[in-house]
Write a protein that binds this DNA or RNA. Structure first.
Length: 1010
RNA sequence: GCCCAGAUGGCGGAAUUGGUAGACGCGAUGGACUCAAAAUCCAUUGAUGGCAACAUCAUGAGAGUUCGAUUCUCUCUCUGGGCACCA
């Protein structure tokens, strides 16, 4: 047989598949569909490195097994080619960005082709193709012409809203077009507004975050030229993604996605349930605040407005220190801008500490108790979240606490902590009654040193301060003194202070065998001298007295939450942030936080509301290389859509791709464009990628983005593979658009991607990311040339779990290469003998007895076990262990004298998704006439998988001491008997008493000795 | 600071309804084949002690639950990712 020349073989079959259209998806098929999708790449100038194909290989293997299992598989590929790098290239070389894209696409295609993917290239899409972006523009217009109907909880055409407004609002009809449009703009799902951009005056352009660097003083400057960058408010288009926030969050539950991606999206959306509460003021202007802690309303000691609060001017003009306050606002805004810029670049926002200024003379009135509190402006309050104002409760909010400490504002405790022990020896026992007790905790300081008196209990390992019950009618301080004297013997105490609130604790009292609900008062004493009386014997047995250094007390009492809390409150005066029990809150005293939130909100006429961290998405770039937004600004100030018939609105040619100096896109420099009133912003990068998976279903359709029948057949993506860096971008935007299309009746599912898998990164040898910058890039072309595509594919799957980051190691590739050569050699062996010698070994016909036949049987058993394992592993995307199983099978086959040719073919079939070229070559060499890649998937025989004889371990006290061989179905009593009789076991059990014997079926026996 | 994930030989990694830790691969050492080399094959390869049989220790650290813990619980350390004044 021929030598294994991977270059020749791989080229040959790639050509074969191409001409025979082996991987072309069937158009009208009665087969079940299966849609396997990769995140399409941005074709960058530097091409692929070996990290890029990892995800593609995984999804390709998945697509291949599905194809072999008889599904009609859609496995397409395309290019997401709008964006900055191509534009940059255009500016530098003064060529049309399309040229750069064409060139890069060519490189990508040739690199991908070498790896032997089973893409159906006839369905390729490219976001920069006018025939494609025609439909991106079309979808944009549908979004623009829709609003979110809160009652129906879905998007509806804006025409419905107009009708509604005409019915309900008499004035609406009388309004001018401009005025009507203004109102509608507040409802449209795509709307015009203002937002801040990074503006570089010197370059006369808006910069993306990654075009900005820090200069040596930490100020933001342009990467090109090093010119200062500032924030500038500019007209932008937005998408009202926040309308979908609830659905985007709650629908995550039904998705088969990696947990952490769901977590990231959930955090990003950031739902908080809280209350909006109005504070009246002494100047006839209310301040509305948002809080999640309405239960702390009685603890409000001041109110804070954001420097960027929309109505700040109204308060400013009536304050007594207007000049000073406006100066503060100006400076604060500047700082915030800089902070924002840092945040966008992923740097710390620069928490130099909170600053603020009081608006003198202005008072807010607490609606809960009528108390007047001061009004402040503070830079720690965000204008863009909630209402832009907060009620400050320093006792129960860390930020307010910090601010109050800095500006000497009062603190008022209204939530008493409650600790419920759940685990451990003092965890509350579920079926036992709770007994309420009033009690006292005493913190006792040493008479001369910086030490505190602690107790370490002997019965359990409880550590804390002096604790005791209060007897009926007893004075609090004397109760404390009595306890200290009884438990420690110290006599001369000086009372210092008392914690102004109680601490509640539920726990199990081991000595008294009771569930306790204790209400602690906390007292602070100092010893006057060292006088100490001898303790009663029973007290001595209970606990040790320990003097603990002040610095070490926190650690000493750390095993007990409430003791540690007491210490921290007294010594570090920390805010209590958790829920608890209300106090100093009039009629609400004694309620839990949760109950109180609703009741207090109701009481003050507030509203329960939901807020989101997520903001509406900016849908505009001030750049050339993107989809034109199909809107026309008319002279009268209204905006109209480009008629559907005129789509695509084609990107015009420009003479220069340079920014034009006003911050607008180069399109603003095209006379005809501006004259026509066309929008000069272009769409952001995420537009084209938010729906491309739908276009693959029907990529050449001229009448719609995809035909209804095709959409109905393909429905949604069954498996989506890509990097986790798109968690809050592409994956969120796609879900948003898809939900919109679902609401509008264009797609049958409300979620586009049923199952999502994230391939892990491939790091370079040096542990860094592969990048031109580090010079550590490995090009797959080189690997394919030296080792072959099949080897590369197997290596990338074998190197570690698919979803985890692993380091590339070119030395290790030799393993998978040897494996393929082994498979090749086995093929040679199989083919060396006349076929007739093999046919008769079909199973069922094997005679027991001879060692040769015996090895055939065990090989066949192994084959069927391997088929099972590989099938299940691919389904679960555990490619590394699938490869490992096939390596074991190959080694056994090579050792074996006789190999059943049909068995060998089955092996080739399960290997084919991983190594399509070499298996195809061998498959045809064995006389097959049709591609192995559509040959069907072998099934395993359950009977052959079961072993009759199994080896199990025998443990003595949990340690393996012997191994015995037993029939798989042997009864427990017999197994235990056999185990005990084993020589090695006897050695250990001799003269010992066996107290327990355990048999875990098919696994092990454990003999427990006393 | 908060949230999430993770930590296993020289290296990549395997093993979970709690049941023989280190599969498979790389590397290393020794051997067979060869004039020689490459390739291939065979053997050994967690650590310590021992001629050996074998024993002890070992899954980031410490505790706990259990006949038995890489797997479950708690605390801590480190690494990666996300968020970052979101009230």
């Amino acid at each position: 047989m021929k030598e294994y020349d991977h270059n020749k073989i791989e080229k040959k079959w790639q050509k074969f598949w191409d001409t025979k259209k082996t991987y072309q998806t069937e158009n009208k098929s009665k087969k079940k569909k299966f849609y396997v999708l990769d995140m399409f790449p941005y074709p960058s100038g530097s091409g692929l490195h070996v990290g890029h194909p990892r995800g593609y290989i995984g999804s390709d293997i998945y697509a291949r097994i599905k194809r072999m299992q008889g599904f009609n598989v859609l496995h397409p590929m395309g290019y997401d080619a709008f964006g900055l790098p191509a534009e940059q290239y255009a500016i530098e070389h003064n060529v049309h960005p399309r040229k750069a894209v064409e060139k890069n696409v060519k490189t990508f295609r040739s690199q991908l082709d070498k790896i032997g993917f089973s893409f159906d290239w006839s369905r390729q899409v490219n976001t920069t193709d006018p025939e494609y972006y025609k439909w991106t523009q079309w979808i944009f217009l549908q979004i623009y012409n829709s609003y979110y109907d809160a009652e129906k909880n879905k998007a509806r055409p804006i025409s419905e809203l107009i009708k509604k407004l005409e019915k309900t609002d008499r004035n609406f009809k009388k309004l001018s077009e401009i005025e009507k449009e203004k109102i509608l703009m507040n409802y449209r799902l795509a709307y015009e507004g203002y937002s801040e951009v990074n503006w570089c005056p010197k370059l006369g352009t808006v910069l993306a975050n990654d075009e900005i660097v820090d200069d040596k003083d930490g100020n933001p400057v342009s990467e090109r030229g090093g010119y200062p960058v500032e924030k500038k408010s500019m007209r932008q288009w937005f998408m009202r993604i926040t309308a979908y926030a609830d659905r985007l969050a709650s629908d995550l539950d039904g998705l088969n996605w990696p947990q952490h991606i769901k977590e990231i999206q959930k955090n990003w959306i950031g739902i908080s349930h809280g209350s909006e509460i109005e504070f009246k003021t002494n100047i006839d202007r209310n301040i509305k605040v948002f809080t999640t802690r309405a239960d702390t309303l009685f603890g409000v000691t001041y109110v804070v407005l954001s420097p960027e609060h929309t109505n700040i001017g109204e308060f400013l003009v009536q304050s007594q220190n207007m000049a000073e306050a406006s100066k503060y606002i100006r400076e604060a805004k500047e700082r915030l801008n800089k902070g924002d810029m840092n945040r966008e670049k992923g740097l710390p926002a620069g928490e130099a500490g909170k600053t603020g200024i009081e608006l003198k003379g202005i008072k807010a009135i607490n609606p809960a108790n009528g108390e007047e509190v001061p009004v402040w402006i503070g830079d720690y309050v965000l204008a863009s979240y909630g209402t832009g104002a907060v009620m400050a409760v320093p006792a129960h909010d860390e930020r307010d606490f910090e601010f109050a400490k800095k500006y000497n504002l009062p603190t008022k405790q209204v939530i008493e902590p409650i600790f419920i022990k759940k685990n451990g020896s003092d965890g509350v026992k579920p079926n036992l009654e709770l007994i309420e007790r009033n009690a006292v905790v005493c913190v006792v300081e040493h008479w001369s040193e910086k030490k505190f008196l602690c107790l370490a209990w002997k019965k359990n390992d409880w550590k804390g301060f002096v604790v005791g019950g209060i007897e009926n009618g007893e004075n609090l301080i004397s109760a404390g003194e009595r306890e200290i004297k009884e438990e420690t013997g110290y006599q001369n105490l000086e009372y210092i202070k008392k914690l102004e609130y109680k601490i509640h604790s539920q726990f199990y009292h081991e000595v008294k065998k009771q569930n306790r609900f204790a209400h602690f008062d906390v007292l602070y004493f100092k010893l006057k001298d060292s006088e100490q009386k001898e303790l009663a014997e029973e007290e001595k047995l209970l606990h040790d007295l320990v003097w603990v250094d002040k610095e070490k007390v926190d650690a000493f009492v750390s095993t007990d939450e409430d003791m540690q809390f007491i210490w921290r409150v007294f010594i570090k005066s920390q805010a209590y942030l958790s829920d608890g029990i209300l106090s100093h809150s009039n009629q609400f005293d004694g309620l839990t936080s949760e109950e109180a939130r609703k009741k207090i909100t109701e009481f003050v006429g507030g509203k329960l509301v939901t807020k989101y961290k997520m903001r509406d998405a900016i849908f505009a770039r001030q750049r050339y290389w993107g989809e034109p937004i199909p809107l026309i600004h008319k002279k009268d100030g209204t905006v109209v859509a480009v008629p559907e018939k005129k789509l695509p609105l084609v990107l015009p040619n420009v003479t220069s791709y340079e920014p034009i100096g006003t911050g607008e896109s180069p399109l603003a420099g095209v006379k005809a464009w501006v004259k026509g009133g066309y929008e000069t912003n272009t769409m952001p990068g995420w537009a084209g990628s938010s729906w491309y998976f739908l276009r693959y279903m029907d990529p050449k359709n001229k009448k719609s983005f995809a035909d209804k029948k095709n959409i109905k057949y393909w429905k949604d993506v069954d498996l989506y593979v890509g990097g986790q860096e798109h968690a809050t971008g592409h994956l969120l935007y796609s879900r948003f658009w898809h939900k919109f299309l679902y609401d509008s009746g264009y797609v049958p599912t409300s979620e586009p991607f049923k199952t999502l898998k994230n391939q892990g990164l491939i790091m370079a040898n040096d542990g860094r990311k592969m990048s031109k910058r580090w010079g550590n890039v490995v090009n797959p072309d080189d690997i394919v040339k030296i080792y072959g595509a099949d080897t590369l594919r197997i290596y990338e799957m074998f190197m570690g779990p698919f979803e985890e980051t692993v380091a590339w190691n070119t030395d290790s590739i030799i393993g998978p290469r040897r494996f393929i050569e082994k498979v090749w050699r086995i093929g040679e062996k199989v083919m060396a003998k006349p076929k007739n010698n093999f046919g008769r070994y079909a199973f069922g016909g094997i005679q027991q007895g001879s060692s040769q036949n015996h090895s055939l049987v065990s090989l066949q058993k192994l084959l069927h076990k391997t088929i099972k394992k590989v099938t299940e592993d691919i389904e679960a995307m555990r490619f590394n262990t699938a490869v490992s199983a096939m390596m074991i099978l190959a080694s056994e086959m090579e050792k074996s004298e006789n190999i059943n040719i049909e068995d060998y073919k089955k092996f080739l079939q399960i290997l084919a998704p991983f190594a399509p070229h070499v298996t195809e070559e061998l498959w045809f060499s064995l006389g097959e006439k049709k591609s192995i890649n559509i040959s069907g998937w072998p099934k395993w025989n359950e009977k052959l998988i079961k072993d009759e004889e199994i080896k199990i371990a025998v443990q003595i006290n949990g340690k393996v001491r012997a191994e015995i061989e037993i029939p798989a179905d042997m009864l427990e009593a017999d197994v235990l008997d056999l185990a005990e009789k084993n020589e090695n076991v006897k050695k250990w059990t001799e003269g010992k008493i066996i107290i327990k014997k355990i048999y875990v079926k098919g696994r092990l026996v454990n003999i427990v000795l006393s």
